[in-house]
Amino acid sequence: MNILIVGGGKPVYFLCRTFLAKGHEVTIINRDHDECIQLARRLNATIVHGDGSDPVILEEAGAHAAGAVLAVTPNDQDNLAVCQIAQLRFDTPRAVALANDPDNEEVFKKLGVSAFSTTRIITSLIEQRTLLDDVINLIPAGEGKVNITEIALTEESPVSGNALRDLALPHGCLVAVVLRNGDAVVPDGSTELRAGDHIVVITLPGNHGPALRAITGETA
């Protein structure tokens, strides 16, 4: 896929490197001439110098052929404009804007642009991790309507030593995968959980807290 990124700084460099490693073709639009030269030297990507919200620059950067446009500048107004121009003028199938101000995540969605807030994602990660030591990984999915959580089970976990069907988990909570000795297994009711297992649990925000408490036994 052709991915068009508008922005600069370390996040754009590493984003680009990651996309390239996955086999995508990447074009970066950046306003800073010196940074463009640096990016061109270090990345096997097309670098375009200019204002990414200017339709002329977007066209030059191949916006017509882009499968996705990603606007991650430090200015929300620019990220919004990039995505809107990409959608209105170039029929970009997918345009995503970074909302630096977390309030703007909701605002951008109302204005027809999908958005994400790193502040909100990091806040939720930190809250979840400091809340429970055993929670290793938490990914919000479905625009925050679903949580996917990886939990390490210990001897103290109340669920250790029990079969899934015997657990008193809240409604709407699913143990989707059990990771044991490096193998990932999709469990059924007879699967017994053991200390040392990592389990991947899918919850809805409403029952996320109760589900985690039931699994880890922590009351925080």
């Binding site: 919200s53 200015n75 107004q77 620019d78 919004l80 404009a81 605002v107 204005l111």
Partner: peptide, 16 residues
């Protein structure tokens, strides 16, 4: 002075 600020503010005023 910035077009993108004006367009964003105008859209928020209108839609939100």
């Amino acid at each position: 002075r910035e077009d993108n600020v004006n367009l964003m503010v105008a859209q928020i005023a209108k839609e939100v």
